[in-house]
Write a protein that binds this DNA or RNA. Structure first.
Lengths: 345, 345
DNA sequence: TTGTAAGCGTTATCAG
DNA sequence: CTGATAACGCTTACAA
């Protein structure tokens, strides 16, 4: 049995109240008693029971995180950022993945609700309504990758339309005519926005979008999409709706001996850490993933502490990150090798 | 204020005890009352308070995970596996990173101790003594990447020596003579074992090891090490003690126009998912990272449930994964391109 | 400054 | 089968 505050009190010959006060450095204890109690507590290696504490204090010092998946560097970066924020606010991190299932998400949210002081949630679903319903707004709610402002306190979103627009525009400017798009899942808002951005850039350029293939944001689906493309005449470029799928494409292309960017250009979205290390380095829309995670955690903690912060949606516009994979300069026929040397990865 | 069991009891016109029984489907309730209570509870959207529950039940349904870092795909995979295991055992996951600091690790462990039913810990420190001391064995303890069996219930380790030995042996067999080694941090047991394995393979082959550079398992240190190597005459091959550093090396080499494997061979350790997608695909020692995470979680849960399982250390031997980066076949002078096409990534 | 005692929300024991 | 009621470990009025 673990040592309780009562054991400490007994050993220190004081009441439990005094121990509690000494431990939580309330001002109403003599320095002497405090030291005495602290020494005993330390000797007994006393650690207050978290559950009891949260029951009494009505707070858990924990923030819950629900993510749709844990595969790959995107989530790895996000979690890293969340940990940074939580740690600096002295909060624990309760992590859960919904695996893209609404039912699992709702279940996880319900289960978490009573164990956390705040929630940071990213779901692939259109808006925060379901999430909010499951959470009942019992605790502060921060939504990730959502523009919803009605059902949460703060949401973080990236301007997927603008990001995709800029990447597509860049590819067009580089002289690519037939640009295929590997989209994300149909029911994912972000994926839809990226597709819209892709189309908008073509509209603006007065150019018809190339083939549009359905993916699911996972690398394998990018691989599959590229394989489909390889079956017939190749387009000039492929724009994958995220980096993971772009990596899948790259892999498929290489395995067939198709060289990027010489034979075909390639671009992704997210700028996960590996993107700049691929061969060729990947042109993409840069999203500060870890930074968003950190801010989301910070923000959630501020909310928990009742600090007045600006509610609503924090939109960040992805930065176009041009690397060698997007290929030929418009107008010039510079050798690919020279190009890949010139562009700083 | 959240709705409590008392609110449900009042609304259902029964005692709290009955509500509790109905909710935890104890056999001693009429089907009728159970249904009645359940309906009311659902209508009120009642969720039992985790803290109170854990106080009363003396269990938290949570397993704590302490990792030295969260950077990169290695930890991402590990966490994914842990989540898989935790989820299937209906446990929550409390995640924390020690950032390589002993003091942080100890603090995190103490803080977690009272909030979890079991612990899965990976630290860069030699043995489990510190960890065990911090945990006081209050809960089951599973150690990751440690061979310690004295201070924990179960530990998972990989045979770093054998893994490195095999990679080095492979490089030697491929005809590489001067093989540089980029090591991990000096105080890391795993890193030391890999270095020993590297040396042992050379000893067996009657060949002198090449230059040994100090790294820290992070990509940047691999980059730096390769830069050092680039400053003087290049070795025939570089063996980095993990994939992240190998990626850093690859990056540095490419930026100087050095081609892998044509100009120099390269190998890593871990087989993180990206390894097979690099250009060239990376030869490495394959460690089933996610699987180990899943098993560790499973195992921790079994321990929590008092199931009798085999204690001690579960050692897994990394599998040599040969890909194009390790370069020329011993004796043959096959063109690199042909090679990279032949070897299945 | 310190101690006593009343919660916090559940579950479990023990009568009815 | 159901209802009081006593834990569980901690914090915090309220008293002394």
């Amino acid at each position: 049995m673990a040592v309780t505050i009562r054991d400490v009190a007994r050993a220190a010959q004081v009441s439990v109240a005094t121990v509690s006060r000494a431990l939580n450095d309330s001002q109403t204890v003599t320095d002497e008693t405090r030291k005495h109690v602290l020494r005993i507590a330390h000797a007994l290696d006393f650690v207050p029971h978290g559950g009891a504490r949260s029951l009494s204090l009505r707070r858990t010092d924990t923030i819950g995180v629900l993510l749709p998946d844990l595969h790959g560097e995107y989530f790895s970066e996000l979690i890293r950022g969340l940990d940074l924020g939580a740690r600096s606010g002295r909060q624990h991190l309760l992590l859960s993945a919904s695996h893209g299932e609404v039912s699992e998400a709702v279940a996880a949210l319900r289960a978490m609700r009573s164990r956390v002081d705040g929630l940071v949630v990213m779901t692939p679903f259109a808006d925060g309504e379901l999430v909010a319903a499951a959470v009942k707004r019992a605790v502060p709610l921060v939504l990730l990758n959502s523009r919803d402002t009605a059902h949460c306190d703060v949401s973080f979103a990236i301007d997927n339309h603008a990001g995709a627009f800029n990447v597509a525009k860049h590819l067009i400017a580089r002289g690519h005519r037939r640009i295929a798009f590997v989209s994300g899942p149909a029911d994912n808002v972000e994926a839809r926005d990226r597709l819209r951005g892709f189309k908008a850039a073509h509209r603006e350029a007065g150019q018809a979008p190339g083939r549009i293939l359905r993916g699911n944001f996972r690398e394998e689906s990018g691989f599959a999409a590229a394989c489909q493309l390889l079956a017939s005449e190749l387009p000039d470029a492929i724009f994958a709706a995220n980096d993971a799928m772009a990596i899948g494409c790259l892999h498929a292309l290489k395995s067939e001996g198709v060289q990027v960017p010489r034979d075909i250009a390639l671009a992704g979205f997210d700028d996960i850490p590996i993107a700049r290390l691929l061969d060729p380095p990947l042109t993409t829309a840069g999203v500060p993933i870890a930074e968003i995670g950190r801010q989301a955690a910070d923000c959630c903690i501020d909310l928990i502490r009742g600090k007045k912060i600006e509610t609503g949606c924090r939109l960040s516009v992805p930065e176009l990150v041009i690397r060698a994979s997007s290929g030929r300069q418009s107008g010039t026929g510079a050798a690919p090798s020279a190009q890949s040397r010139r562009i700083r990865p």
